[in-house]
Design a protein around this nucleic acid. Structure first.
Lengths: 274, 274
DNA sequence: GGTCCGCATTTCGTATTGCGTAATCGATGT
DNA sequence: ACATCGATTACGCAATACGAAATGCGGACC
């Protein structure tokens, strides 16, 4: 079957600006909506569960989602029915279910950056013989989406899915330096300037005592930061200095990854500080 | 504020069985519903996106979800608003968004089996010096949720989030042998019996040519299979025979993991064939 | 052991919300 | 330039979800 016709790009709303008077019902604030508003409210329940990252009682969940318990309960019944939420049989608390896991892992597979930088990560690990990972911004922090462990594994309690701190991890500081949404955090101004200038953040005693980290940003074709590549290693024999071998390799990997994401440094250098 | 009172376990529905006549509206089939039905319909949109595992056009998505395009579109607008779905700027196709990723990774962190068997997996990898992974049933197949790579990495294009085939992977066959939902697949009857008897499935040329695999089930406190531990290795020097060193270690790891999940073999052996 | 209290879950009437149908818009191919 | 196909929006009806309060249940306290 050949594609006979039709469009390929999304349309933008052709409706006139603010038409005014509502036909039926109420309509309070000025925003028009073409979607299903109860769905967006229901997403608030999931957001509350996701941000809590632990099983929640109905009352607590309803408070976090900003709705009366009866309403949250109605949503939860349907979420449970579809597997998006599960209710702990012992405690009665609500948590994200198997369907949420499934969707997330499908989304993980679909992330362009994971596919496009897989080779870069593996090469970096093989070259340095250290553990490296890729993180993207999500869930209010840098979230690990790919983990390449070195032959000499290091003992840390983070893994794919872990969210790192913004202010106290090399990875987080990279996002703080280049991502508007992360810039609000208390990161030293001089440090931000340094990270922007060098394309590199370093830290000793990262995640755990005795673990060093080096992190570099990955930009996409618009010059926006879309991820960070981080190298981890035991401080023993791990050269985390900004001019060392590991740091240089990390920066080069970040630049290589950025190129694969369509980033053209010569054209877009200025946009990075977005 | 101390906890002054209240319940800890969920309630079961105290309503009388089939009350009959609906108060208002229509109500077609016999099932009562206390939830928000439009929400469950909306979940069908996400399910379609998850099962496709690739960006979908509105028409195709609506067909898969079994609803008119206009309806699917209304849902999509709200899903996009909340970040659950993203629309590709180039093609206009719809795919799972960042919020889906976030939720899934939170759910991944919350999976008891991942936490409780992390040590078992790491020990198994260290003992055998081979790559091992943990899979749970999800998205219509065994889904990898934890990956422990050996010092000598193997080149396969699967990772956390990948869904394995049921019939042609050792991991899939374990689920086929112990999980009702997976039993429908065309797996040889004798093979199923063998896997049940030995608690082990083996395969050569798994995933790729020259890769061997050995897999064992993990049961929970009810005797239900909740996961499978699989060892991978290059066929060269990889003993995939059911009586070999690797197979024995894999079985032991599965049993150890099951114990940590609360499984008591002496009490519940009979229930496993559920 | 009895009582109280808090939380989860359900019920019920109302009107707000979403649904179906169809028109409009935009792009692609002929 | 026309025809075609798909995405997006408009509109009125009525089915659906909402809010408030009643009911059930389980633990805590006395």
């Amino acid at each position: 079957m050949r594609s006979v016709g039709g469009r390929t790009r999304p349309l933008r709303a052709p409706v006139g600006e603010d038409a005014g008077g509502g036909a039926n019902g109420h309509e309070a604030d000025g925003a028009r909506r073409r979607g299903v508003q109860s769905l967006e409210v229901a997403m608030g329940v999931l957001r509350a569960l996701g941000e809590a990252a632990r099983p929640l009682m109905l009352k607590e969940l309803a408070d976090r989602a900003g709705m009366p318990p009866a309403k949250a309960h109605r949503y939860l019944v349907s979420f449970i029915e579809s597997g998006m939420v599960r209710q702990d049989a012992e405690t009665g608390r609500y948590a994200l279910g198997e369907f949420a896991l499934t969707l997330g892992l499908v989304a993980l597979q679909g992330l362009d950056i994971v596919r496009d930088t897989a080779g870069v990560l593996a090469d970096l690990r093989d070259h340095l013989e250290e553990t490296v990972f890729l993180a993207v911004w999500g869930n209010r922090g840098p979230t690990i989406v790919r983990w390449e462990e070195a032959a000499r594994p290091i003992a840390v309690n983070v893994r794919v899915g872990s969210v790192l701190p913004v202010e106290t991890s090399a990875t987080g500081r990279v996002f703080a330096a280049f991502l508007k949404e992360a810039a609000g955090h208390a990161v030293d101004r001089a440090m931000v300037e340094d990270i922007r200038a060098t394309g590199l953040a370093t830290q000793r005693n990262a995640l755990m005592q005795g673990i060093g980290a080096v992190s570099s940003p990955v930009f996409d074709h618009r010059g926006q930061i879309v991820g960070a590549i981080t190298v981890l290693g035991a401080d023993t024999g791990f050269d985390a200095s900004p001019t060392g071998r590991i740091a240089r390799a990390c920066v080069l990997a970040g630049e290589d990854a950025s190129r694969r994401m369509g980033y053209r440094p010569d054209l877009q250098q200025a946009r990075r500080s977005a």
